[in-house]
Design a protein around this nucleic acid. Structure first.
Lengths: 226, 226
DNA sequence: TTAACATTTCGATTATCATCGAAGTATGAA
DNA sequence: TTCATACTTCGATGATAATCGAAATGTTAA
């Protein structure tokens, strides 16, 4: 069951909540105090917004000791928000620092639990061009040779396919306005890239940097220039 | 220059404005009094909303005598609104009458100045399958044989292509969640279908009905069952 | 137990905004 | 001119909602 658009739209209509959701777009749990900080509001106000978002069912809480960790309820919500942003470009950044962040987040970032941004779209397109994936409506299917490709990255395609969650969805990238790979396969690929030290999280943001090693390996494997 | 998402979102967040915009989605000019009527608000209130939408630049006015005709400023805005609706299904209709309207509008409607809904998507898909169009990212290109096909409907592809406005865009259909044909070519096709009496406007709505003649001809031409 | 901390609930304040009555402007008709 | 119509502007009202101080709850650490 997908979330109600009008509710999500009214939630997104407030700048504090938009900031909170942006922080949650990495798919990981964040404590309430941190979310208050990024939205530049007092903890009470953040709590007010968080219960509101809990009520309409787009986020979830886990209690650990005196902390409460909030996260997006599922990847459908992440994709809905991502696609809402993709329909129109966001406002231009102002300060020097903003320009830097803007570049980072456009280059590579996590979208829920898979890779997005320029790098995410480049990788996805390369996988299509090299005959690993084939786009089929709004999903990808893995080709025969694709199974071997993923095996070389320690990803068991059959295992991923058997999981309950959707396997290999197209997710609309707001910065590139093209599709990138999402779903269980997209997540496995992201994890594999972390394990191989091809990519690294940039602290305090959901931006990602591609290591020198990662650029070399991916150039060799997929003929892409990152 | 595409409209600012956050502004459009905040505009769409009000039910009166949503009703007005829905009425304007047929791309044609409507007098202010009519818009007040469909939104079930007093003329002053409608005027308030209309000036607001004028300010952010998503609608336009034409004065004819004592009337003022409002319309969407361009098809980009129509497509933005259409795609905002497509990311999540709208609420279920209640009354018998609503169910009827719901069915009509899902079956076929105008989206700005091209054909949308089940019929619109069917026609677009058939054009792809019959080798008339090819999807290329978020646009369509007309094949060699496609040029002849359109000529048989009195549409000069070269002429349409030379126009300033975008030629053959993919527009995301909110009811079918698939792409249909938009742009100058989509508009020409709609006009041609009206001229041939294949389709007809259903008064007071932006719903469209396909005539018996239209069903027969399109079945013959494109092998689709409408 | 006590103190510090994370978070929420409550209550008050303030800001924003949709709504509509009343009055004003412009146009067309008689 | 005079009246009706279409629409807008102005001003008041009421509803909604974001914000935060104060106080309460619960949790950890000493």
């Amino acid at each position: 069951m997908s979330p109600d658009l009008t509710k999500v739209v009214s939630i997104l209509n407030d700048s504090s909540r938009a900031a909170i959701l942006d922080a949650l777009m990495d798919g990981k749990p964040h404590p309430a105090s941190e979310l208050a900080l990024v939205a530049k509001i007092k903890p009470q106000t953040a709590s007010f917004h968080l219960t509101k978002m809990l009520d309409i069912g787009i986020i979830d809480v886990e209690r650990h000791g005196r902390h409460r960790y909030y996260k997006l309820i599922n990847k459908e919500v992440a994709e809905l928000i991502e696609s809402l942003y993709s329909v129109s470009p966001q406002s231009k950044p102002k300060s020097f620092n903003q320009v830097h962040e803007y570049k980072q987040i456009h280059y590579a970032r996590t979208c829920y639990d898979h890779l997005a941004g320029y790098a995410g779209v480049q990788v996805t397109n390369a996988l299509s061009q090299n005959g690993v994936l084939e786009k089929q409506s709004l999903d990808f299917v893995v080709t025969k040779s694709g199974v071997d490709f993923f095996k070389s990255l320690d990803i068991d395609v059959d295992l991923q396919q058997s999981k309950r969650r959707s396997f290999a969805r197209c997710c609309l990238d707001w910065s590139e306005r093209e599709h990138h790979l999402a779903g269980a396969l997209g997540n496995s690929l992201l994890e594999s890239m972390f394990n191989r030290n091809w990519i690294r999280r940039i602290p305090k943001t959901r931006a990602i940097e591609v290591t020198v090693e990662g650029k070399r390996e991916m150039n060799e494997l997929l003929s892409i220039e990152l």
